[in-house]
């Protein structure tokens, strides 16, 4: 049972890890593009915005299990196989890209337009604005979005067992549900709960640290004051 669970854990982390990387790499530019091409955006292009937005919507409305089956051909082309954990990464990433892109879009829209204007007034171009303003200023939100995406991907990865990719969700379904091994089911659920809590905690912590540094309106003003005092003494 131990080896089974260890193997399942590794599989889940492997799938989720890689698909998160791909989702961030794909979703970040896509989300920024959604903001830039929107009406009044820096690279306004209504047609492109509509097209990208529609693709994202369609991809997001597709149930994951259907997406997995629909993408089998593409998966085989990318990884050379349509079963196993490598094969599961492709539909997981493809499903998470539009999800993450929408979160990025919301986060980037929150950035104060005045900052964009300030950089423009210094002679910065759109790329400068993205690099120096949009991404760094939205970073705390972007990290929170990544956390949400990772947690969602862990959920999706349960279905990856369908293509023989293993993972914790697969154990819970095959052993726990189909073979009535209730304890095993609870153990997997407990492991998942711990993993997700840890990820959420780490993500929240990272986002909060960054936010405090910028400290627009942190939840603990007292703490911030103390921090400010310590940085001051460091400067002196």
């Amino acid at each position: 049972m131990q080896t089974l669970l260890t193997q399942a854990c590794t599989d889940t982390l492997y799938m989720v890890g890689w698909s998160t990387l791909v989702a961030v790499a794909g979703g970040l530019p896509l989300g920024i593009l959604l903001v830039l091409t929107d009406r009044g955006g820096l690279a306004q292009n209504i047609l492109a915005n509509k097209v990208i937005g529609q693709i994202v919507n369609v991809a997001r409305s597709m149930p994951f299990i259907i997406l997995m089956v629909a993408l089998m051909g593409f998966t085989r082309w990318v990884t050379g196989t349509s079963i196993g954990r490598e094969a599961a990464i492709v539909p997981l990433a493809v499903g998470a890209i539009p999800f993450f892109a929408r979160l990025v879009e919301t986060a980037v829209r929150e950035v104060d337009g005045g900052l964009v204007e300030a950089v423009q007034s210094m002679g910065g171009n759109t790329w400068t604005v993205v690099r120096k303003v949009l991404v760094p200023e939205a970073l705390p939100s972007l990290i929170a979005s990544t956390t949400t995406t990772v947690v969602a991907l862990i959920g999706y990865s349960a279905m990856a067992g369908t293509v023989g990719a293993g993972g914790l969700g697969d154990i819970a379904i095959r052993y726990g549900y189909q073979r009535f091994q209730t304890e095993l089911m609870w153990v997997t659920v407990a492991i998942l709960a711990v993993v997700i809590s840890l990820i959420q905690f780490a993500g929240d912590h990272a986002a909060r640290t960054l936010h405090h540094r910028g400290g627009r309106s942190g939840p603990a003003p007292r703490l911030r004051l103390l921090k400010a005092a310590t940085t001051d003494t460091k400067t002196v």
């Binding site: 104060d112 005045g114 007034s121 002679g123 200023e137 960054l210």
Partner: peptide, 16 residues
């Protein structure tokens, strides 16, 4: 533009 300085009402400093 880079030769024209501009200051803003709400400062517009990058908080990060």
């Amino acid at each position: 533009r880079s030769r024209i300085g501009m200051v803003f009402q709400h400062f517009n400093l990058l908080s990060s």
